[in-house]
Simulated assay, not measured.
Amino acid sequence: MDNRTNLDDYLAGLGISDADESAPLPHTPEPALAGPALDAAHEDPRAVLERFLRGLIARMDPSLQVSITETGDALEAEITGENAAKLAGRDGRVLGAIEVIAYTVLTKQAGRGDLRVRVDVGGYRKRQSDTLSKLAERLAVQVAKSGEPHELQPMPAAERRIIHITLKEHPDVISESVGEGSARRLVIRPRHG
């Protein structure tokens, strides 16, 4: 494993660099990832994110499409196409990595570290959210019936948040996060008792 410490080096290692600006992508009049050095304070964050994601997916599967929407403090990207779901990777790990790199590019090129970046591919995040909501509802019934708390395995903050939101108004149970760092997990407890 090499000891690269710079995002530019990582991107260059992936074949993504400033040198790519001379080779526009199909259906994209702009450079793939890193266009001419524009004043970062004036570059539109949505355009930066779209350019990055189009460049990335063009190298993986040119038939995929990207759409970006802005929702308050976040940019949400949806990658669609016949093989889009494959980009999620095992347990959403590739999708998570894409989000981290997209956020880093957005921060670097648009100077907008205040915007969150959420990326979904082929509806993966929606399906995951639905699955977690159903799990929360099943566990709520179990905890309400038994009167005993249920502790889940450690999970990322975004997944815990889905369960918290699902159970927020539940009359019989409450949810809380316990632990620190990567060991942080969720506990569902009876509301009264």
Rank of each mutant, 00 (worst) to 15 (best):
H42I: 02
A58K: 07
L53K: 08
L75N: 06
E43M: 11
E82L: 12
P36V: 12
L87S: 03
P45R: 02
D91V: 01
A74P: 01
A74T: 07
E99A: 14
R93G: 00
V105M: 11
H42V: 03
E99W: 02
T80K: 10
K86H: 05
G81L: 08
Q109C: 00
R93S: 03
E82Q: 12
A74G: 02
A84S: 07
E50W: 02
A77W: 09
R59W: 01
T80R: 12
H42Y: 06
G72N: 12
L106M: 01
H42M: 09
R46L: 06
R93M: 05
Y103R: 15
E99H: 06
G96E: 15
K108V: 01
D44Q: 06
E82V: 04
V66R: 11
T69Q: 15
D73R: 09
A84D: 04
R46T: 08
H42E: 15
L56K: 04
T80M: 04
P36Y: 08
E43H: 10
D73Q: 11
G72V: 05
K86V: 13
F52V: 10
G96N: 14
V105S: 02
D61H: 10
S63Q: 14
V105Y: 06
E82K: 10
A37M: 11
L75M: 05
V48L: 06
N83P: 00
P31H: 13
I68Y: 11
A88G: 03
E82D: 14
S63D: 15
E78Y: 07
E76T: 10
I98D: 03
T104M: 15
T71S: 14
A85Q: 09
E82T: 12
L33Q: 05
V48R: 07
S63A: 15
R59V: 10
E78R: 15
D44A: 08
K108N: 02
G92E: 07
D61P: 03
A37W: 11
R46Q: 14
G35H: 11
H42L: 14
V66Q: 10
T104D: 09
A84L: 09
A77R: 02
E70P: 00
K86P: 00
R46A: 14
G55D: 04
K108S: 07
T80E: 12
L53H: 04
N83L: 09
D39H: 04
G92K: 07
V66H: 10
V100R: 12
R51M: 13
A41R: 14
E70Y: 00
L33I: 14
E76I: 08
A74K: 08
L106N: 01
R54C: 12
L87T: 03
I101M: 11
G96R: 11
D73T: 11
V105Q: 03
V48D: 08
S67D: 15
A88K: 02
A40E: 07
D91T: 01
G89Y: 04
S63G: 12
E70K: 10
P62W: 11
K108H: 01
A88Y: 03
Q109E: 12
L95H: 09
R93T: 03
G35R: 13
H42D: 13
R54F: 06
L38Q: 13
A32H: 04
P62S: 15
V100A: 14
V48K: 03
G35V: 05
T71V: 12
G96V: 09
V100P: 00
S63F: 04
L75Q: 05
V94T: 15
P45C: 05
E30K: 04
D91G: 00
A88N: 02
P62M: 14
L64D: 04
T80D: 10
Y103W: 12
A34R: 14
P36D: 13
